[in-house]
Design a protein around this nucleic acid. Structure first.
Lengths: 232, 232
DNA sequence: GAGTGGTCTAGACCACGTC
DNA sequence: ACGTGGTCTAGACCACTCT
């Protein structure tokens, strides 16, 4: 009585995906009701639902309560990206990792940082700059602001022993993250830190993390010339 | 008899998330078994499983078959990003969209493109370059290679009527996408296209899409100076 | 109002990895 | 070996939205 081949939600997902790839259903077309798909494939509706969930997440299919499911017409590129911790990235390249703390001071957030934190008032912050090296060559320059109102305990930590990132991840897991990517021109400080010419194009990754709406940290990572980020 | 408040998997997720944020369980700590969590919260195990699924996807929790669930110790930044279609992005800025096709030719893929396609042999391709304008100002330069072996029909399409991206998305939905981000220096062609100085730092987004292992298209989008990508 | 997806439940069995 | 997460099922009810 049990449906002879075992129907996994992945196989159902791939089956439906196949219908779309083979143009049985084209972008804009309406897909059958979940129940009919379940009947056709000989599985439970919940399995179809689970499959559709993933097809929806990747943007291939759109679903509406009364309107059924349809193949997306113009979907944006959507992808799950994973940005490694600098130390992990460098070591996975087979290079030796080291780091140097350039500066560390407690100071109120300047307006630009305040804006990144979506804050109305100037937050008391810990500001740090560091370089991470791969085989002794500068790999990335990190400019970090940590809100002391959200993470007061970090002020007491010896950050030459444990990296700020590591301490934060362990002691104050974040909730939400904003990321931004851009290209900037090396200014004097960056050119010195990354040992490159002034005005060299550099790739910059910015992250702001939150815990229950309270800002934790804003980090600008500026990479060595020629760096390409290929998230997972 | 029914558990009085309705327990949604989202509320269960938030509850568990709250335990972690409040340091009831810290990174590295083991979480209770699904069944015990279900009992504590008064819901079905499947609801806990659904909640855990999301906590796992965002990297906050790690699960192993026999070993139970634990709060992740050092997690990389993981986020779902969504890169809008250029036309949509420009229009959502409240600007008028226009585009100009700079070149179009059928030619074998050069080695660099072949490598991006992970191909062993030189694929026959359609190569196009275009500029997309926002209120008449150059917004992004697009350099696209389409594999004619995977998408032979595109050769017949009038791409001044419908954009290549639109045609591909409608007629050949992709399976898989690789993305890469970098900073480059404006060369002569880009400086002319984007109306900027030579050697200006420019942000570049590269995407390669696939359908069932066959390469569809490789696109390099190079943005106007100062552009910042803030995915969703 | 009615039909669709959205969700929850209770139970069962499977598969993996640790003990 | 055995306990944990992983998955599937069948059924029920809800909520949205289109008609």
């Amino acid at each position: 009585m049990t449906p002879s081949p075992r129907h996994s939600w992945r196989s159902v997902r791939d089956e439906i995906h196949g219908w779309i790839l083979s143009a049985r259903y084209k972008p804009g077309d309406k897909l059958p009701r979940d129940e009919d798909i379940a009947a056709e494939l000989g599985c439970a509706r919940s399995t179809v639902v689970r499959a559709m969930q993933e097809l929806t997440e990747t943007g291939l299919v759109e679903r509406k309560r009364r309107g059924g499911s349809q193949v997306s017409q113009s979907r944006p590129t959507r992808a799950m990206i994973e940005i490694p911790v600098h130390k992990v990235e460098i070591e996975s390249l087979g290079k030796s990792y080291s780091t140097r703390l350039l500066s560390r001071e407690e100071t109120p957030a300047p307006p630009t940082v305040q804006a990144r934190f979506r804050a109305q008032t100037a937050l008391s912050c810990l500001h740090m700059r560091a370089i991470h090296f791969a085989d002794g060559a500068p790999f990335v320059h990190e400019d970090r602001w940590v809100s002391l109102e959200t993470a007061p305990d970090i002020a007491k930590v010896d950050l030459t022993e444990i990296s700020a990132n590591e301490w934060l991840v362990t002691n104050l897991p974040y909730d939400e993250v904003d990321v931004a990517f851009s290209a900037i021109s090396a200014d004097t400080a960056l050119a010195a830190a990354l040992e490159c010419e002034l005005q060299t194009p550099l790739f910059r990754l910015e992250r702001v993390t939150w815990s229950q709406g309270a800002p934790i940290t804003a980090v600008q990572s500026t990479f060595h010339p020629g760096y390409i980020l290929r998230p997972q």
